[in-house]
Design a protein around this nucleic acid. Structure first.
Lengths: 158, 158
DNA sequence: TATAATATAGTCAATAATGGTCAAAGTCAA
DNA sequence: TTGACTTTGACCATTATTGACTATATTATA
């Protein structure tokens, strides 16, 4: 479609992702930027707009000498309850709401008791220990991302 | 994967550690540096960043003639380790240190893959999303309390 | 035995080699 | 014309590499 560099880079990455057996690409930001004659931060833009977790990608990177960016495609079934709930969590979340969520997940056997216990701790105000409203925002991120992690962990476990 | 010498040396050391029955490797710093064509202090860098006690290794050394560096992999005591590790976590904790801890717990089978994935998420700087030094303090609380929660969690509900 | 020479390993700070963030400026279609 | 999307670059953060200087142990020598 569009002739902008971002789309070109996107197609390039998706093509090599498809071709790789492992479902993973590893690249150096500077190399890719050079290949497409753009500034390095353009690569970050492409990744953040087109390879986010919402689209089913996991991106890891490392800075420093020998650094890299690694993109993996994960099977993320959006109908699975955990990821649906993760998506339904907004920008802020009270402790009461968070506890209601993890308790219902435990009841439905979507969490083990250990996982439940762990999440109960993670969302507790004393553990977070920062002031509102930051605390509720932090809690929302922690719980949402934790549920996403659990969704993907299952996929990885084979 | 890695284009840097540090990672290559790390893999080399882990390979011979695996191959040795004793779970121990002894080497001379200068020899290893020569083998990999790097300065000797690079070996110290690799050891301090990848073979710290957080990663489950103990390193001893001796200077002078016949000097050596000895790396041992230590098994965690499977009876109380989670709580012990929780106690050893101080007031502040970097992402790198936190990951070292959860990786070694996974390796020792003290965490399931899902729990590992979850904790990896909880200690990630992007998820915490607050500035240093608060971030490292928050991470220390989260991980320490999470491990305590796991210690106390009732074993799996049928 | 004292001392000097030699052979190791350790520390630390400077520099290099990466990737990340953010906001300003540019582009383009509705 | 406006608003969403893209492009750019200055500045930031993290990790790796190097080497000068330091510390310690062993061995040779006076």
């Amino acid at each position: 479609m569009a002739n902008n560099i971002s789309d070109v880079i996107e197609r390039y990455l998706k093509r090599i992702l498809q071709q790789s057996q492992s479902g993973m690409v590893e690249l150096q930001r500077g190399d890719l930027a050079e290949l497409f004659q753009c500034v390095p931060s353009q690569i970050n833009y492409v990744i953040s707009t087109r390879f986010s977790v919402d689209y089913g990608y996991v991106v890891e990177s490392k800075r420093g000498g020998g650094g890299y960016i690694r993109i993996r495609k994960v099977e993320l079934d959006p109908t699975t309850p955990l990821s649906r709930i993760a998506q339904s969590i907004g920008h802020t979340l009270s402790q009461r709401e968070a506890e209601a969520i993890v308790e219902s997940l435990l009841r439905e056997n979507l969490l083990t008791r250990r996982e439940y216990s762990l999440l109960k701790t993670v969302v507790h105000r004393d553990v977070l220990g920062v002031d509102l409203p930051l605390r509720d925002e932090l809690r929302a991120r922690l719980l949402a991302q934790s549920l996403v992690a659990l969704t993907m962990a299952r996929a990885e476990d084979e």
